[in-house]
Design a protein around this nucleic acid. Structure first.
Lengths: 205, 205, 205, 205
DNA sequence: CATGAATGAGAGTTCATTCAT
DNA sequence: AATGAATGAACTCTCATTCAT
C-alpha cells in the first residue's frame, strides 16, 4: 500500500510540507493565544518560513483558521448524518441519547480548539458563516428524523418539524458551548438524560 | 415638582450633560458602524468633546457600550421577573407563551441595538459576561417556576429544574437571535406556539 | 507690528510648529529622494516626531506633497494673473515676452522642486489634477488676452481664442519642463524670443 | 511560399510562441489595470507560463511594456518620416495639416494603449526615455523641413529651426495627449486647423 | 527551455490612551 | 471639569525576483 503523497513530484511534496508546517504552527498559535490575539506574524515565525510564504497558501488569518476548522467540522458532519430509523418510542429515545452524547463528546474531545472556534465565530463573519453551515445541516437532518417519527405515528403531528428541530438543536448547541467553556460545572450524563427526556416527553404531565 | 437634576450644582449639571452627549453619540456610532468598527475617536468627534473628556467618563469602548446596554438589559430583567403562579396546566401554558412573547418582542423592538449587542458579545469578554448575567437570571427564575410547578404536581418530578430551565432558555435565546438577525424568515407566533408546546408537552405521544 | 501666530494659544502654536517641522522634513526628503522613493517613514524620522503624529496632519504622502506644492503653485497663479492691455503689436510682444520670462524664471528658481513636481505629476493623479488646475488657469487667462487683442484689431479674428491659448501655453509649459530638466541645453533668452516671435508672427512670410 | 518561422527548429518555434503568449497577456493586463497597478504576476498567470519563464524573455515590467510599445512607436516614426517638399505656402499648409492629422489619428486609433503609455512615461524613466526618442526624432525631422522652407524662401529666416520645430511639436504632442485623455472635449478638425494656422501665420496681423 | 516554491524587505496605517495645561 | 496634541507599538500584505530542479 502506497501513500499517494509519495507519488507526487518532489516539488509538490515540498509545497505540501510547507503548507503543513504553517497549519501546524497556526494551530499552536491559535491554541496559545486565542483567535483575536493570534497574528499571522506569530504563525510565520513558528513555522519558520518566509514572510510571503504564508500568503502563498492562505489569504489571511481567517482563511488559515477555516482550513484548520474544516477537519473538525467534518467530524461534526458525520455525527449529523447518523441514521435514525426507530420502530418505537424507546428506540428513538436511545438513538437520540446516543447522538447527543456523540455530539457533546466530539466537542469535548476537541475542547481547546472549540474554545477558539467559539471566539472566532464571534469575531469573524466568515467563520460564523461556516458554523451556521454545520448548524443548518444538523437542523435539516433532525427535521427529516422528526418527519419520519411523525409518519411512524411516534411523534406528535401538530408540531412543526423544522421549528422543533431548530429548538432542539439550539438547546444541544448551547449546552455544548457551556460544557466546552465550563466542563466542571455539569455532569455530561445528567445533561444528556435531562435534555433527551424534555425533548421526547415534555415538561408537563 | 422639581427635576432633581436642577438641584445639583452647575458643575455637576454640566458634567451630566457631557456624559449624556457622549452616550448619545456613542449609540449613533455603534448603530452606524457596529461594535468592532466603531472607534472612540468617532464617538468623541460626534459628541464634540475633547479627547481626554471621554476618558473621564468611560474607561474604554467596552465600558461605554455596557452603559448603553444597561438600559436595555434592565428591560430584560423585568421580563425575567414576571410572576408565575399557575393553578393548572392550561394556565401555565398561557403564562409561558406570554413571557416568551414579551421576551421576543423586546428583542425585536430594539432589533438594531440587539444586533450590535450580539456582535459585541462575541468580541468583548466583558460584554459577554454582562449577557451571561441576564441569561443566568432568567434561568434561575425559570428554575424557581419549574420547582413551583413540580410542587403543584403540574410538572414532572424526574426532570432536573436547573437543567431543564437552562435547556428551555437556550432554545428561546437562540430563536431570539435568529429573529433579530433574520426577522423575515419566521412568523413569530409560529415560533412561540411550537416552542411552548414542545416545552410543555414534549415531542412524543 | 505683531506676528499673528504669537497671539495664538500655546497649544496651537505648538501644533503649528510640529506641522512646520513635518513640512520642512518632507521638503528635504522629497528633494533628496524624488517623489516615488520618498516615504512617510523617512519624513517622520527626519522631523523627529512620533509615528502617528504625521498622520494627524497629513493623510498620506500625496497630501503632504500637495501642501508643499501649494506655495509654489500660488506663485504660478500670480504670474498667470498678470494684467495684459497692449495698445499696439509691439507692446503686446513685449508684454508676452515678459510673462514668458517670468514663467520660466519662476520654474528655474525652484528647479529642484519642479523636478520633483514633474515626477509627482506622472505618479499621483491627485497631484496631476493640481497641476492641471494651474494649466487651465493660465489658458483661461490667455484666452481672455487673445480676445482682448482681437477686439483691439491687433490679433487675427479667425483664430479660436481657447484653442490658440491652449496651443501657446503647451509650448511654454513643455519648454519650461525641458529647461527644468536640462538647463544647460538652451539659452533661456533664445527660447523666449523664438517662442514669442512664432506666437505673434507665425512661421511663414 | 513558406512562413520563415516554420523553418526554425522546433525549440525556437516554441520559444517564440511563449514569448508571444507573454506579450499578448501583457497587453491585456496593461489595458485592464493601467501601468502602475499591473504586475508581472498577473501577466504570468494570464499567459499561463511559469514564473521563471517570464524572466527568460523580459527583465522586468518596464522591458515587457517597452516591447509592447515598440510596434506602436514604429508607426509614429513612419509619420515623422513623411516627405515634405512644398513649392508654395499653400502646399506647405496642406502638407502640415495632413501630417498633424495622421499624428493625432494614430494616437486616437490606439487611444487605450496611449493612455497607458502616458501613465508609464510618468512612472518609468526608461519608458520616458523611449518617448523622448520619438519626440526628438519628430523635432529633428521638422527642423529639416523648416530649413528646407527657409531655403525655399517660404519661411522666415530669423526663426531658429530647432527651437521652432520644438515649440511646434510640443503643441502637437500636448493636444494629442489632451485628445487621448478627453476625446469628447474637442473637435479634432478644429484643433488641426487652428494649430496649423497659428504655426504658419502667427497670431498677429 | 521551462518551472514555480520560496523569499523578505518594508510600506502604509490605525487608534486607544496619556498628560501637561 | 475639560482639553487635544502627541504618541508608537504592532499589524497586514505585496510583489519582483531567484534558483534549484
Amino acid at each position: 500500500m502506497k501513500n499517494p503523497i509519495d507519488q507526487l513530484p518532489a516539488r509538490q511534496q515540498q509545497a505540501l510540507k510547507t503548507r503543513h508546517k504553517l497549519l501546524q504552527a497556526g494551530k499552536e498559535v491559535f491554541l496559545e493565544n486565542g483567535f483575536q490575539k493570534a497574528t499571522i506574524s506569530q504563525v510565520i515565525k513558528k513555522a519558520n518560513t518566509g514572510y510571503g510564504t504564508a500568503y502563498v497558501y492562505f489569504k489571511n488569518k481567517d482563511e488559515l483558521f477555516i482550513t484548520l476548522m474544516e477537519d473538525l467540522m467534518n467530524q461534526f458532519y458525520e455525527v449529523a448524518e447518523m441514521p435514525f430509523k426507530p420502530q418505537a418510542k424507546e428506540e428513538a429515545y436511545e438513538n437520540i441519547k446516543k447522538q447527543v452524547r456523540l455530539f457533546l463528546r466530539l466537542a469535548l474531545d476537541e475542547r481547546d480548539m472549540m474554545k477558539v472556534v467559539k471566539e472566532a465565530i464571534g469575531v469573524s463573519p466568515e467563520i460564523e458563516e461556516k458554523w451556521y453551515g454545520i448548524r443548518e445541516r444538523f437542523i435539516e437532518r433532525i427535521s427529516v428524523d422528526i418527519r419520519y417519527a411523525q409518519a411512524q405515528k411516534l411523534a406528535k403531528k401538530q408540531l412543526d418539524p423544522a421549528l422543533t428541530a431548530r429548538g432542539w438543536f439550539y438547546s444541544n448547541e448551547m449546552f455544548m458551548w457551556e460544557l466546552v467553556m465550563n466542563e466542571e460545572k455539569y455532569q455530561m450524563d445528567d445533561v444528556i438524560v435531562n435534555l433527551t427526556r424534555m425533548y421526547t416527553g415534555g415538561l408537563y404531565e
